[in-house]
Design a protein around this nucleic acid. Sequence first.
DNA 1: TAAATGCGAAACCTAAAAGTTTCACATTTA
DNA 2: TAAATGTGAAACTTTTAGGTTTCGCATTTA
Lengths: 108, 108
Amino acid sequence: MTDTSTKHDVFQAIADPTRRELLCMLAENEMPVTVISSHFPMSRTAVSKHLRILLEAGLVTEKKVGRETRYRLQPEGLKELKHWLAYYERFWDNKLAALKSFVESDKN
Amino acid sequence: MTDTSTKHDVFQAIADPTRRELLCMLAENEMPVTVISSHFPMSRTAVSKHLRILLEAGLVTEKKVGRETRYRLQPEGLKELKHWLAYYERFWDNKLAALKSFVESDKN
DNA sequence: TAAATGCGAAACCTAAAAGTTTCACATTTA
DNA sequence: TAAATGTGAAACTTTTAGGTTTCGCATTTA
């Protein structure tokens, strides 16, 4: 396991709306920084910092290609969040079904 | 529906580790502020502020009983988070995407 | 009724987060 | 080789988050 995944925690990483937009944008395609930042009303450097936080939280991957740095979603990073949430699911809806999903989430 | 539920968003509310502890503590039992804050290494006022943020995010409820204010978990507030997360689950359930990220993670 | 209890509001402080501009450094491309 | 491109590091500013102390106000209780 990379130690980048522990520098920033997932909860803090997804707290920022810009970073959530980034995740959405990187879900389907891998993209270089300049292209990514052209979609946001802030400097490229600011976007780059957000990407670093997502990287350290294990939510995106970074790949150097020539002079570009391409980012893409790393969905596995969200499993910690899913597990955290699973604990609380048993407090709503059908308690039995919720417990079931909690147990099942252990496999992931 | 109370408009307090939209003042603070859920993502920001759960970003703080103290607030996540609060949710856990209030999951099973309803508790007054003084009792809650006795479990934390900070002032009652600080805990009270965290509780307010959780309240505004729709994650806890508040109930006045005499001179006490009792809080308890409102698990439905986490449904928004579950919904957000559900979108990304398909990216790790998708076998092709999963294989790709598996190969990439081998380098690290 | 007087004292104690439970709590939030207000004012304040400090550290961290989020943004900017500038600069240096590879990598391409003309 | 010279110019253009893509990027991160550094230094800085401003805003926000998280904490404190003090105070006042209900509500209980002695």
